[in-house]
Computed example of a mutant assay.
Amino acid sequence: MASTQLAVHKRFDIDFPVSDPSTAQVTSASACEVRQAWARIPDPLSQQQTETLRERIVHRLKSQQAALVAHYYVDAQLQDLALETGGCVGDSLEMARFGRDHPASTLIVAGVRFMGETAKILSPEKRVLMPDLDANCSLDLGCPPDAFAAFCDANPDRTVVVYANTSAQVKARADWVVTSSIALEIVTYLHQRGEKILWGPDRHLGHYIQQQTSADMLLWQGSCLVHNEFKGDELLELKKAHPDASVLVHPESPASVVALADIVGSTSKLIAAVTESTAGTFIVATDQGILHEMQKQAPGKTFIAAPTAGESATCKSCAFCPWMAMNGLAGVNACLEHGSGEIVLDPALGRQAHKPIQRMLDFAAAYKKNIRASGDLSQDVHLFSQIGPA
Rank of each mutant, 00 (worst) to 15 (best):
T52M: 12
L53M: 05
R54C: 00
E55H: 09
R56T: 02
I57S: 06
V58K: 13
V58Y: 05
H59T: 15
R60Y: 04
R60Q: 14
R60P: 02
R60D: 10
L61I: 14
L61M: 14
K62M: 11
S63Y: 01
S63H: 11
S63F: 02
Q64H: 08
Q64P: 03
Q64T: 01
A66P: 12
A66L: 10
A66V: 13
A67Y: 10
A67S: 15
L68R: 07
V69L: 13
V69I: 15
Y72G: 11
Y72D: 06
Y73A: 11
Y73C: 07
V74E: 13
V74P: 14
V74W: 13
D75V: 08
D75M: 04
D75E: 13
Q77R: 12
Q77F: 03
L78E: 01
L78I: 14
L78V: 08
L78H: 07
L78C: 08
L78T: 07
Q79V: 00
Q79C: 09
Q79W: 01
Q79M: 03
L81S: 05
L83I: 10
L83F: 00
E84G: 00
E84N: 02
T85E: 10
T85W: 06
T85G: 07
T85A: 14
G87C: 04
C88S: 12
C88N: 09
C88A: 13
V89T: 15
V89Q: 09
V89W: 13
V89N: 11
V89Y: 09
G90R: 05
G90N: 10
D91V: 05
S92G: 08
S92N: 12
S92K: 06
S92F: 09
L93N: 01
L93V: 09
E94Y: 03
M95K: 01
M95Y: 02
M95Q: 11
A96E: 06
A96K: 05
A96G: 10
R97K: 15
R97A: 09
F98S: 05
F98M: 09
G99Y: 06
R100M: 11
R100N: 03
D101V: 00
D101M: 07
H102V: 01
P103G: 02
P103Y: 04
A104I: 03
A104S: 12
A104G: 03
A104F: 01
A104E: 05
S105F: 00
T106H: 04
T106Q: 09
V109E: 06
V109I: 13
V109P: 05
A110C: 15
A110K: 07
